[in-house]
Design a protein around this nucleic acid. Sequence first.
DNA 1: TCCTTGAAAGCGAACATTCGTTCTCAAAGT
DNA 2: ACTTTGAGAACGAATGTTCGCTTTCAAGGA
Lengths: 223, 223
Amino acid sequence: MDDTLFFEATQAEPLDGHVHSRAERRDLQAQRILDAAKTCFVRSGFQGTSMQQICSEASMSPGALYRYFPSKESLIEAICEVNRRQDAETFAAMENCSNVVDGVVNCAIDHLRFTHDNGNAPIFAEIATESLRNESIRAIGDNCMVDVRHKFHDYLRGALERGEIDPVVELEALLPMILAIGQGLAIADLPNQGVSFDKVETMLRAATVAMLRPVDARDTAGN
Amino acid sequence: MDDTLFFEATQAEPLDGHVHSRAERRDLQAQRILDAAKTCFVRSGFQGTSMQQICSEASMSPGALYRYFPSKESLIEAICEVNRRQDAETFAAMENCSNVVDGVVNCAIDHLRFTHDNGNAPIFAEIATESLRNESIRAIGDNCMVDVRHKFHDYLRGALERGEIDPVVELEALLPMILAIGQGLAIADLPNQGVSFDKVETMLRAATVAMLRPVDARDTAGN
DNA sequence: TCCTTGAAAGCGAACATTCGTTCTCAAAGT
DNA sequence: ACTTTGAGAACGAATGTTCGCTTTCAAGGA
């Protein structure tokens, strides 16, 4: 609960010949534990997973495991932290796109593809749910969201000032909307239900265009 | 695990004078337990809630509680069942709308409003997550989804045949997309983040229009 | 090259606690 | 008299975590 990072960079370089320095091995073991924990959390959820199960999955005794992570909670915190970093990267890549719609859509699709390829949908759902009640996890998520919101907000504001976005759009409403949709799509994992990424992208692009230019999109609506 | 319904209609009518028939009181108590359980599940999740906590919340001893529900699992099953019925009603109301877009949007907003007003977002997330791994809960959820999918599918197909929907649209892709977005919005609970229902509806309508008539929406896109 | 040494890593039994559930028996209702 | 309801102690299993012990192994001295 005190420290948010349990393992720093350890040592700068593996000086020469030794394939496994002490610090390298330590990082390797820690990663092994995290992988095992993630597998178990996907299978049974955070609260539904026992430390014994994680130990079995990692082929490690409880005593050994506790040398690397001080508590069960620290395990999810670490996993959340990894996801957080991944999210930040994905969102950062958005800024390289020439127009807003591509930026948003590509960013979302990257996110969905990453989630699908790594089988991360269940653990995303787990984290999202756990965030609603576990304070220390929510803190990590919020931290992430603050970053993302800022990046996203600045990006959209820039596009708005360049005239790419209808000035009627309120970023403060649009942003949570997009994030909510992105999260819903990530958890649902449509490609796992037989809907291809291409189709998702097509629909998502249409929806994004419509939401960024709501006046144009609405004047032909049947309402 | 065997029975899916633990309490049926009990007795047809309270014959006369008695304010509390035996059966009535039993239903009342069962409801009290369910309310307490829901409160606890929202607070701590299913796996994170102990039977003792539910007993305390319901001001009832374990012995008494177990007279009404045979297991912890039967409690979530019962709660899911209630949600299932509510969902079915919400989706059924869709058929009374004159055009597709209104049908879909109104249905979604009703769903969001119900979720928000009852503080159901956390338990929705809980159920969605738990469904990914708990067999008996997934069964209930799937049952619900089968109903919803069919109703929705028929509804959209009707609209498509009436020319309300661009024939290019593939219902098999559109349907999961809409459901995923709906679930994402329900869990995110935007009104709880300061985004009004009106704004959500505006954006959702724009997105819906765009996805139902993707050719019209795309030919002006900057792609 | 070999031995010594000390810290890090690992093991697995044991800890106190809490879990979901059952049992016993008394009170209340009919 | 008989059934339903309830309280609360009690159950064994399982929980997250700790502790004492052994093993491993790189570094330093000979």
